[in-house]
Amino acid sequence: MPQIKVGLVGGGGIAAAHIRGYREHADRIGITAVADAVQQTAVDRGGELGATPYTDYHRMLEAEDLDAVDICLPHHLHRDAIVAAAQAGKHILCEKPLCLTADEAADVRAAVRTNDVTLMCAHNQLFLPAVAKAKELLDAGTIGDVYEVRTTDSFYNDFDPATMGWRASSKTSGGGELIDTGYHPTYLMLHLAGGSPVEATAMLSTHRLKFMEGEDSAQVLIRFDNGVVGQLVTSWAYQPAPVTERFSIVGELGSLHSNGNSLTYQLRSGETDTFHWEPVDTFVAEVGHFADSLLNKTRPLHTDEEGIAVLGILLAAYEGARTKTIAPVLQT
């Protein structure tokens, strides 16, 4: 048996990426039970993993000797699963977005804090080596005080009405592309900006996926309490131009930029350097970090605190787009 026994909640979609992580770290952490509302999915995943299948995660929480759960459900089901797991005393790895509303965020925070469990947000792109290096350079003051952060996550998505499923509905997705793929450049923005978000606004568009209830593209502006201004672009409608960076940061002494696999900084003094990395499986790194956090009793890179802050940015951006104003980021 692994040192940390995990119950997988939701066996479809993104669960496959998480499973790669458990296989790589099988000496420390592993899935011993799986729950999915679709019985065949539960049975198939259970057979694949050598795990006990359930169609109700509440039953799994009652019957299994688990240390943690990994929540890979559709967005609108996250809050209830987090609260149930916390009340059962289980640590939690939860896919993004953490939840969908300020009220849900308050419920999550209360459940996690009251029951003294660790919650880690599955913000996998933070485990890119380029992101870690950028954070190291920023913390060392290499480019001085930060003025501007830009993040991008766009791609040509071939969703159609037959394959999009629950993501086509704003009620179950929480909005549109911005709260889905757009969640990635938002938590990356938060991580690199080094402050707390205070206000945001957005322009939302539906360029191509007209059958969606929500937007397929968004441009967002965010101000942080340390003076940093963030600009974010995200889309399912189009592939960005080849020169588009994954992220860039401008400060008083210079700037840095990255395409995800390399990072370059250039100072006004003329000093410059470039770093390169082979592609990494960020989901494998994410699961390993979750295991380390539980075994060493250390704080994960992003907890419910950051997950709620990211949600606050998105909710303010949606409100700004709705009212054509700059909306405050509500503190939960």
Results as ranks from 00 to 15, higher is better:
55 T>A: 07
56 D>N: 15
56 D>A: 10
57 Y>P: 03
58 H>F: 05
59 R>N: 09
60 M>C: 08
63 A>L: 10
65 D>Q: 15
65 D>T: 14
66 L>I: 01
66 L>C: 07
68 A>V: 07
68 A>I: 08
70 D>V: 08
71 I>N: 11
71 I>M: 09
71 I>K: 00
72 C>I: 03
72 C>G: 08
73 L>W: 03
74 P>W: 01
75 H>N: 15
76 H>A: 12
77 L>A: 10
77 L>G: 06
79 R>A: 13
82 I>C: 05
83 V>N: 08
83 V>R: 07
84 A>T: 01
84 A>F: 00
85 A>N: 00
86 A>I: 02
87 Q>Y: 00
88 A>Y: 14
90 K>P: 06
91 H>I: 11
91 H>M: 13
92 I>H: 09
92 I>A: 02
94 C>D: 06
96 K>G: 00
97 P>M: 09
99 C>E: 11
100 L>H: 04
102 A>M: 13
102 A>F: 14
104 E>M: 06
106 A>G: 10
107 D>F: 03
107 D>R: 10
109 R>N: 06
111 A>M: 08
111 A>G: 08
111 A>P: 02
112 V>Y: 02
113 R>K: 04
113 R>Q: 12
114 T>D: 12
114 T>P: 00
116 D>T: 01
119 L>S: 04
119 L>P: 01
120 M>K: 02
120 M>T: 06
120 M>R: 04
121 C>V: 12
121 C>I: 10
121 C>Q: 04
123 H>T: 12
126 L>A: 04
126 L>F: 11
128 L>P: 02
128 L>D: 04
130 A>K: 03
131 V>R: 03
131 V>H: 04
133 K>A: 06
134 A>S: 06
136 E>T: 00
139 D>M: 00
139 D>R: 00
140 A>M: 03
142 T>S: 01
142 T>P: 09
142 T>C: 08
144 G>H: 15
144 G>K: 14
145 D>K: 10
146 V>H: 01
147 Y>P: 00
147 Y>H: 12
148 E>H: 11
148 E>F: 10
149 V>I: 06
149 V>H: 09
151 T>L: 05
151 T>P: 01
152 T>H: 15
152 T>V: 12
153 D>T: 05
154 S>M: 14
155 F>D: 02
155 F>T: 07
156 Y>V: 07
157 N>F: 14
157 N>K: 13
159 F>N: 04
159 F>Q: 03
160 D>E: 12
161 P>M: 09
162 A>I: 04
162 A>R: 08
163 T>H: 05
164 M>W: 10
164 M>P: 00
164 M>Y: 13
165 G>H: 13
166 W>M: 06
167 R>L: 11
170 S>P: 05
171 K>R: 07
172 T>F: 07
172 T>V: 03
172 T>L: 10
173 S>T: 10
173 S>W: 00
174 G>H: 09
175 G>N: 05
176 G>P: 11
177 E>N: 10
177 E>T: 11
178 L>Y: 11
178 L>F: 14
180 D>F: 14
180 D>E: 12
181 T>I: 13
182 G>W: 13
183 Y>N: 06
183 Y>P: 00
184 H>D: 05
184 H>P: 05
184 H>I: 12
187 Y>K: 03
189 M>C: 08
189 M>F: 05
191 H>F: 15
194 G>K: 01
194 G>A: 08
196 S>I: 09
196 S>Q: 11
196 S>M: 10
